[in-house]
């Protein structure tokens, strides 16, 4: 992977960035409407509405503490495990309300995978790390099937060649970038429809970052990816649409090229040009 230019605003995936047109070609995967969220007494999200499309990358940007992670965690109901966290509003996956009582959060998390900021492989073998998801969901029956899933997932995560000879070694013995790709392999091993990534490259060096970015390009072909990032360049490089958050509110969401070249809101303008943050 050759070095990226400092800021390279990608050409929009869809030629004409007129309202509504670009999105029409993509299929709506997840939709959030009027999401309010409280941590105890304190409100962290204020009426956030955002559409996320299949086969594309949606980037969430915004200053620290503005609620990007919080919003991302709403999408696979990871906030459920936080004491005193309350969510209001409507979040749909393929038109189905994921907060409906009959939706099982555990099954939901198999459909909506997540990659975290800090690589967090299980302290088990590389094989076990990837096979764990299929195992608990009963996706495979024979050993060969597991081996197959592990190989495919690692290959898609671009890690297979590096680890194929040491699948029995601990996942924690890998380098940071390899660990993060292992986590991606783990997340995609259960065939999720949506992949949420919370600052997946913030702990990595530029080369590992570049690898993961290429990987995202590859993965997004049959996935809906939502990524939180602090790097404007990264958002510009990998995403098709970008949402700007500020103080718990969604300020603006649009084609990535539009956000970076010609945002509507003054705050977005200030943020992407580095005037505050």
């Amino acid at each position: 992977m050759e070095a990226q230019p400092a800021v390279r605003v990608q050409a929009p995936a869809v030629p004409e960035p007129r309202e509504g047109q670009s999105v029409a070609r993509l299929e709506l995967k997840m939709a959030a409407r009027d999401v309010n969220l409280w941590y105890g007494e304190k409100q962290a999200l204020f009426g956030v509405s955002l559409d996320m499309f299949d086969s594309s990358v949606t980037a969430l940007i915004g200053p620290s503490g503005c609620g990007k992670s919080t919003f991302l965690r709403c999408l696979d109901r990871m906030n459920d495990v936080i004491d005193g966290c309350r969510v209001e509003g409507d979040i749909r996956l393929d038109g189905e309300d994921i907060y409906a009582p009959r939706v099982d959060p555990v099954q939901l998390r198999a459909r909506v995978g997540m990659v975290f900021q800090k690589p967090n492989p299980f302290p088990k073998s590389i094989f076990e790390n990837v096979a764990y998801g299929p195992r608990i969901h009963g996706l495979c029956k024979t050993k060969a099937e597991y081996a197959d899933v592990v190989e495919k997932s690692l290959t898609r995560a671009g890690l297979w060649d590096e680890v194929k000879d040491r699948l029995d070694e601990s996942g924690t013995g890998l380098s940071g970038g390899q660990q993060q790709r292992l986590c991606i392999a783990r997340a995609i091993s259960v065939n999720p429809e949506v992949l949420l990534m919370d600052e997946p490259c913030s702990a990595l060096d530029p080369i590992a970052t570049a690898k993961i970015e290429t990987l995202m390009d590859e993965l997004k072909k049959n996935l809906c990816i939502v990524i939180v990032t602090h790097s404007m360049q990264q958002a510009a490089r990998v995403s098709q649409r970008t949402a700007f958050f500020h103080l718990g509110k969604l300020v603006e969401v649009d084609e990535t090229s539009k956000i970076f070249t010609n945002p509507t809101d003054q705050r977005t303008q200030d943020y992407v040009t580095g005037r505050f943050g």
Binding site: R109, N120, G133, R186, S189
Partner: peptide, 27 residues
């Protein structure tokens, strides 16, 4: 036990008791 391990397990769709028995208790 670091919370990241719990998050990781929850993230791939482990239930609470699976997180406990497979990951947290062994650690």
């Amino acid at each position: 036990v670091p919370p990241s391990i719990r998050e990781a397990a929850l993230g791939v769709g482990a239930s609470k008791h699976q997180v406990m028995i497979h990951h947290v208790l062994p650690l």
